[in-house]
């Protein structure tokens, strides 16, 4: 399943991604990492089920999808197969309990490249009720990205369900 794109020397693999709702997509995944844009924040909001309701310009640029392709989609549209399921279980448990979640996340772009972020997710409270969630991602430190990559690999990525 692995091969090399001769022109760029980048390692590329074809992988069938399965989403929680049972849908599948065959993705071309490369090891190419897109650097986080300096000084910017990647922002999105979801409803209480994790369906995207708002994205900012940096989100659109980094994900490689258009705004129209993102709004209304589950947030797992960005899920990278190297991310362990346990990380997202922890995210959902934390925010459902009304707490702030922080973590290092490797995201999958539409073109198969990836980008690492340091993400914070909080619940949006309006008149005492949770109406959705906001995630704000900022530039992670290289040391923390490397640590996270190692520990996610040890957890077996998405296979460790």
């Amino acid at each position: 399943m692995s091969g090399s794109a001769a022109a760029t020397g980048e390692v590329v693999r074809e992988q069938l991604l399965t989403y929680q709702d049972g849908s599948e997509r065959l993705a071309t995944i490369s090891d190419r990492e897109i650097p986080f844009p300096d000084g910017r924040l990647i922002v999105s909001r979801t409803d209480t089920a994790g369906v995207i309701t708002h994205v900012n310009a940096a989100f659109v640029e980094m994900s490689g999808y258009s705004e129209a392709e993102l709004i209304g989609q589950p947030h797992s549209i960005l899920r990278h197969p190297d991310m362990p399921a346990a990380a997202f279980q922890d995210l959902w448990e934390t925010i459902r309990a009304g707490n702030k979640w922080h973590g290092y996340v490797k995201n999958l772009r539409k073109d198969g490249a990836c980008y690492w972020v340091y993400a914070t997710v909080i619940a949006n409270l309006r008149h005492g009720e949770v109406v959705g969630y906001t995630s704000v991602r900022r530039k992670p430190s290289r040391r923390r990205v490397e640590e996270s990559a190692r520990s996610y690999a040890a957890m077996g990525g998405a296979q460790a369900t």
Partner: peptide, 11 residues
């Protein structure tokens, strides 16, 4: 303003 506040809370 609520959105700005949520965003600052994440920071």
């Amino acid at each position: 303003t609520e959105f700005m506040i949520d965003l600052m809370e994440t920071l």
